[in-house]
Design a binder for these strands. Sequence first.
DNA 1: CGCACCGTTGAGCAAGTTCAATCCAAGTGG
DNA 2: CCACTTGGATTGAACTTGCTCAACGGTGCG
Lengths: 233, 233
Amino acid sequence: MGTKSTPRSALAAARSRALLRSLPGSGHRTGLFANCPDLIGTPFSYAREEEIYGEGEEAEFVYRVVEGAVRTHKVLSDGRRQITGFHLADSLFGFEQGDVHWHTAEALSDTRVLIFQRRPIERAATRSAEVACQLWSMATANLRDAQDLTLLLGRRSAQERLAAFLIEVDGRFGGTGTFALPMTRRDIADYLGLTIETVSRTFSQLEEDGALRRANGRQVTLHRARLRHVVED
Amino acid sequence: MGTKSTPRSALAAARSRALLRSLPGSGHRTGLFANCPDLIGTPFSYAREEEIYGEGEEAEFVYRVVEGAVRTHKVLSDGRRQITGFHLADSLFGFEQGDVHWHTAEALSDTRVLIFQRRPIERAATRSAEVACQLWSMATANLRDAQDLTLLLGRRSAQERLAAFLIEVDGRFGGTGTFALPMTRRDIADYLGLTIETVSRTFSQLEEDGALRRANGRQVTLHRARLRHVVED
DNA sequence: CGCACCGTTGAGCAAGTTCAATCCAAGTGG
DNA sequence: CCACTTGGATTGAACTTGCTCAACGGTGCG
């Protein structure tokens, strides 16, 4: 559904169903913006590897992940890429400084999102201190994540980067220690500032050290105590 | 003044002068919070290398640089340090997620700041959408900076990092192309994720390439076109 | 089947680090 | 006032980490 149409046309089509979706219990009213009756998300879907928005495009919408996963990244002219974040279920993304997206967002896997128009949210923020505070709090949380990544990229070894990354992903999946990574080795490399070969070799090292076990490439089982020992702080 | 006393006692002492300072034209009412009559900053000073607040401390105040320069950083247990930002005149810093500072702030040189209590500002944000929007906008700007740094650290060479850094600092000093760096090589290294030796060598390379000239260590004159060519994007 | 993509592994290489020596400017104490 | 110390910066030489280039195996899909 929907991957051939645009967010704009989907929005128009969905307007008629707005009443139904805004009913309590329909699942679209939890979390940020929950108390904002005019801010109703429109469901939308993207296929694996599909671009959601590109750097430099006008930032008309913001997005909340319902199911699947999204990456945001920046690219240099020669193709070097830095992934700035992965967004799993419930994560909100697409808010930028100014009217233009300053990175690119793509779906890691087939992904369902809720789309919100940015303008009404910003207008709501200028009227409601509560909405504005929610936006502030969200931006601040993102800032903390970005600065943690800064420390990771600036001062940590490949082993530490991968270990920290796996612990982080595990946490976002509920902390069971066993999960399937939703992203490729290339995505991991471009997030951690490494090459795919180094990521692969580091996986092998960590497995030799008994810090994790791999199955079928993407599936991992973490030995969290040992991984935490690698990160050590 | 004031480097032996605490922000708390300075605040108390300054309360009596509040009326005077709040007069228009006294220079304390421009920029963010300008429209917020209760939010009056208290002048305060820090000596070179003095800590302003430490990671883990309760975040009671936020700060605006009046004169001088400040760095914020995180440290790993083994001493590796990542500077997350330099704050020059007019820059606001010290806002964190939650009630605790999650990095450390220190004065690069003798520095004068205005101190604001965080609580009243947060209370004002819950009442005034305008204040909350300013805070949001500030956080978003910081986020963009942090993500630019992420790209720098993850995917750029030493030459590109230093060139981008110098262009950035030049811009903050007015873009004349000639200025004295307010920070040491160690600070630059810890900001760019390099060692002091690499920073020094990279300075030498850039000078050989005619992209800048050095004088007395800290003083530099940039050949901005050539530096921009190094960064290339 | 054949191709494309993903992941792994090996060998050699290069960028940046580590260790060490030296220089210089600015204190500091006799 | 000068010897001595201290901290910042630069440079050289050896080393290490992670990168580049290359080959190969597995899996899914047209």
